[in-house]
Design a protein around this nucleic acid. Structure first.
Ligand SMILES: [Mn+2]
Ligand SMILES: [Mn+2]
Ligand SMILES: [Mn+2]
Ligand SMILES: [Mn+2]
Lengths: 152, 152
DNA sequence: CTCGGAATGTAGCCTAGGCTACACTCTGTT
DNA sequence: AACAGAGTGTAGCCTAGGCTACATTCCGAG
């Protein structure tokens, strides 16, 4: 997950290699991707809670276009990661960490869409591409996007 | 419909059209991601073949920062998908399809990096983020990026 | 020509994230 | 109060993409 700037756990320290550059870039892309699904989940759950008052597994599954069992399994992962809480048959809620993450993800999502639109990308393509791009936008890049949008 | 503005209290009985929109966007992002690794592999193999004359599993593995067994397994997938050919202990080569894909991927990669740099993203962040972003850039978005770079 | 080390390949294990099938719980209607 | 149907949860299977451990092949020194 890239948004909260959470550092990876451990590294075996690979001192010798002369070019860890390229490998580290691929590694970053891989780990960013692993957090993408959780980011989308907290964002959607936050939306559902804000608008309808409750976030049910079936609603979540339908919005993502996956089977309800898949959504439930991912919700379990959200719980393990401390981003959500849920008691059986009682809907899903976000922890403070989940709420905070959702806010960052939502803001970043908006900036990415706005940037694409500002560059002349057609609306539907902007929305569609942003859904994937957003998870690979670092803080530095996000800041650059915001600067560009601010000045016009 | 991206981030909902406010609570729309009641649905206007739009039961039929449902909302394949959001689900299809997530679906696109997911499938784009599934091709990301193969794209990076053909691009790297093409680079290795062009510069050194051969692409060996160990080289590939080192550049990606993964175990050689992982690289070999992915090369197997490239072969299944008709993008590469490889005989045991003889190195990896690209098919015509793989070559074409590599060319497209390389061009897109360059445009994405150039765009980020043009927007003022620091060099290393641009290279790093582009490695993930590139796989989610549609043709329409790529065209918009190119237009922006062309004029300035 | 032989041999040892590097490269390559294979086997098996793990998690994430899909799916279907089936079982259980809740709830609105009758 | 009962029950049908919707919603929820569980179990089990699959593939992709990581890993380690071990087996095999190749090749350059000696
Ligand atoms: Mn997304
Ligand atoms: Mn999003
Ligand atoms: Mn890439
Ligand atoms: Mn690339």
């Amino acid at each position: 997950m890239s948004v909260p700037s959470v550092a990876p756990s451990i590294q075996p320290a690979q001192a010798l290699p002369a070019e860890p550059t390229q490998a580290s870039r691929f590694g970053k892309a891989r780990s960013a991707q692993s957090g993408a699904l959780l980011e989308d989940y907290v964002e959607l759950i936050s939306d559902l809670l804000a608008s309808g008052g409750e976030a049910r597994p079936t609603d979540i599954a339908r919005r993502f276009g996956v089977a309800h069992a898949t959504a439930i399994k991912t919700i379990g992962r959200l719980k393990r990661e401390g981003l959500a809480v849920a008691k059986p048959y009682r809907g899903v809620f976000l922890t403070e960490a989940g709420d905070h993450l959702a806010a960052r993800v939502r803001a970043r999502h908006r900036v990415v869409v706005d940037l694409l639109l500002a560059l002349g990308v057609p609306c539907e393509a902007a929305e569609s591409d942003a859904e994937g791009i957003e998870h690979h936008v670092s803080d530095a890049t996000l800041a650059a996007f915001a600067r560009f949008l601010a000045q016009g």
